[in-house]
Structure formats: structure tokens, C-alpha cells
Simulated scan of single mutants.
Amino acid sequence: MEDYGNFVRIAVEAIPENTAIARATAYVRARQAIQRQLDRGAFDEKTRQAIIGRLEDAILDFEAALLVNSGQ
């Protein structure tokens, strides 16, 4: 299974300024990259949705961690 949490972290680390808008843009790019991979592969719809769901979960987890860490 792919480590989508690491994928999201790397995408955010690549942005010059860690703002909500910049992160949102990074997430769009991450979604597009995963979508391109899915489009090139022979995945059934259930697998495609599961992969997209794991990426979305990783994005939510990353944002939640930012909120928790910002309160420290």
C-alpha cells in the first residue's frame, strides 16, 4: 500500500510558504498526480475509489496534525 501521508508531506514541503492556500494548491497537485497514475493503470472503480479515499484521508490527517501542532 502506498504511503499517502508521506506523499502529502513531501508535496507540502515543496511549497515555498506553508499557508492554507498554498497547501490547498499542493493538495490539488497531489490529487492530479494520483489521478494521472490511476488513468495509466488498469484499476477497477472500487480500487480507484479506495486509492483516492486513502489520499483524501492522508490530506485530512496532515491538516489535523497541523492544527494540533499549532496549538502547542
Results as ranks from 00 to 15, higher is better:
11 A>E: 09
67 L>F: 01
49 Q>N: 15
25 T>D: 12
40 R>C: 06
20 A>F: 10
9 R>D: 09
68 V>S: 01
15 I>C: 08
33 A>D: 13
5 G>P: 00
64 A>S: 04
2 E>F: 09
44 D>A: 08
40 R>Q: 14
7 F>R: 13
69 N>G: 00
45 E>F: 04
52 I>R: 10
37 Q>H: 08
52 I>M: 12
41 G>C: 11
51 I>Y: 09
35 Q>C: 01
38 L>D: 05
24 A>Q: 15
66 L>E: 11
19 T>N: 11
13 E>K: 11
67 L>Y: 02
30 A>F: 07
55 L>A: 08
47 T>F: 04
12 V>E: 02
52 I>H: 04
38 L>S: 07
45 E>Q: 14
41 G>Q: 15
2 E>Q: 05
61 D>T: 03
27 Y>F: 15
66 L>K: 05
12 V>T: 05
42 A>I: 07
59 I>G: 02
1 M>G: 11
12 V>M: 06
21 I>A: 15
62 F>W: 09
1 M>D: 08
56 E>R: 12
47 T>L: 04
31 R>V: 01
5 G>N: 09
22 A>R: 12
48 R>Y: 07
44 D>F: 11
9 R>F: 03
70 S>I: 02
42 A>L: 11
13 E>R: 13
7 F>Y: 14
60 L>K: 10
70 S>G: 14
9 R>C: 05
3 D>R: 10
65 A>D: 08
39 D>Y: 10
41 G>D: 12
39 D>Q: 15
35 Q>W: 00
